[in-house]
C-alpha cells in the first residue's frame, strides 16, 4: 500500500485528493439530509400516541442526576474565577462597584448557558451516543422493533425530550451557583454583604439579559440530545462503533452548541 502511494504521479495525487474531497462533501450532504429526516421523524412520533411518560420521567431523572454535581462544581469555579479575573480591569477604570453586575450579566447571558451545555454534551450527549450505539450493536433496538414496540419513540423521542427540558433547568441552577461563586470571589478582596451583592447583581440584570438566554438553552438541550441519539441510533455494527459514537456525540454536540449560540446572538440582536 505504501509503495503504491509513492508511485502515484502528481496529477494522480491531485485527482485522488479531489476524489476524496468530493466524497467528503457527498458524505456531509448525506448526513445533513439524514439528520433532517431524523428531526422530522422526531416531531412526527412526538405527537403520536401512545406516549412513553414513564420512560421520559426516568430519563429526565437520570440525566439530571448524572450532571447535577459536575455542573454545580464547574459553575461555582466559573463564577469565582471570572470575578477574580475581572477585578484588575475594573479597578483600573475605578469601576470596582460594577464587578457583581458585570460578572452576573456575562454569566447569565453567555457563560452559564454555554459552559453548562458543553459539560452536558460531554457527560450526557456522549452517554446517550454510547448507550444507543451499544443497543444497536447488541441488537436491542432490533429486538424492540420485533416485539412491536417502536424503538424510535421509546428510546429516541424520550431522550431528546429529556435533554431539551433538563438543560434549561440545569442552566438556571448553574447560573445561581456561579453568581454565588462570584459573591465568594468578591469577598476575597473586600467585604460586601450578601444583601448588597445581590442588590448590585439584580440592578443591572433585566429581562433582555435573562429571557433570550433562557430560550436558547432549550435549543442547546435539543441539539445535544438530537446529535447523541442520531449518532448512536445509526451506529455501525461492531464494538468499535460504541467508542466512536460516544466520541462523535461530544464533538458534534459541542459544535452544535456554538452554532446555535451564534444563531441565537444574531436573532437576539435583531430585537434589542
Amino acid at each position: 500500500m505504501h509503495g503504491k502511494m509513492k508511485q502515484l504521479s502528481t496529477t494522480d495525487h491531485i485527482k485522488s485528493l479531489r476524489g476524496r474531497g468530493s466524497a467528503v462533501l457527498k458524505g456531509f450532504f448525506m448526513a445533513v439530509s439524514q439528520l433532517t429526516d431524523f428531526v422530522l421523524r422526531f416531531f412526527k412520533e412526538l405527537f403520536k400516541p401512545p406516549y412513553e411518560f414513564s420512560e421520559f420521567a426516568k430519563q429526565s431523572y437520570l440525566i439530571g442526576n448524572k450532571s447535577f454535581l459536575l455542573v454545580a462544581i464547574t459553575a461555582f469555579i466559573m463564577g469565582l474565577v471570572l470575578t477574580i479575573q475581572s477585578r484588575p480591569v475594573l479597578v483600573e477604570f475605578g469601576a470596582e462597584s460594577w464587578l457583581p453586575s458585570m460578572v452576573a450579566v456575562s454569566i447569565v447571558r453567555e457563560i452559564g448557558p454555554v459552559i453548562t451545555a458543553l459539560i452536558f454534551a460531554g457527560k450526557v450527549g456522549s452517554g446517550i451516543g454510547a448507550e444507543l450505539a451499544s443497543m444497536r450493536v447488541t441488537e436491542q433496538i432490533d429486538a424492540m422493533e420485533v416485539s412491536g414496540i417502536n424503538p424510535f419513540k421509546y428510546i429516541v423521542v424520550t431522550r431528546i425530550l429529556s435533554t431539551t427540558l433538563m438543560l434549561p433547568l440545569l442552566v438556571i441552577f448553574a447560573d445561581a451557583i456561579a453568581i454565588y461563586g462570584s459573591y465568594f470571589g468578591v469577598n476575597l478582596k473586600e467585604s460586601v454583604s450578601f444583601h448588597l451583592f445581590f442588590l448590585q447583581v439584580f440592578q443591572k440584570l433585566d429581562f433582555t439579559d435573562v429571557f433570550p438566554a433562557f430560550i436558547k438553552t432549550f435549543f442547546f438541550g435539543f441539539s445535544i440530545g438530537l446529535i447523541g441519539c442520531y449518532i448512536g441510533y445509526n451506529a455501525n455494527t461492531g464494538t468499535e462503533g460504541v467508542g466512536k459514537a460516544a466520541n462523535s456525540a461530544v464533538v458534534f454536540g459541542s459544535l452544535m452548541v456554538f452554532l446555535v449560540d451564534m444563531i441565537a446572538v444574531q436573532i437576539t440582536s435583531l430585537f434589542t
Binding site: 448507550e131 443497543m135 447488541t138 441488537e139 436491542q140 429486538a143 424492540m144 412491536g148
Partner: peptide, 16 residues
C-alpha cells in the same frame, strides 16, 4: 410480529 418470537444471536437483553 405479534405471532413471531425472535431469539437474537446476542440474546439482546435490555441492559438497563
Amino acid at each position: 410480529r405479534k405471532k413471531i418470537g425472535f431469539l437474537f444471536q446476542s440474546a439482546a437483553l435490555y441492559d438497563s
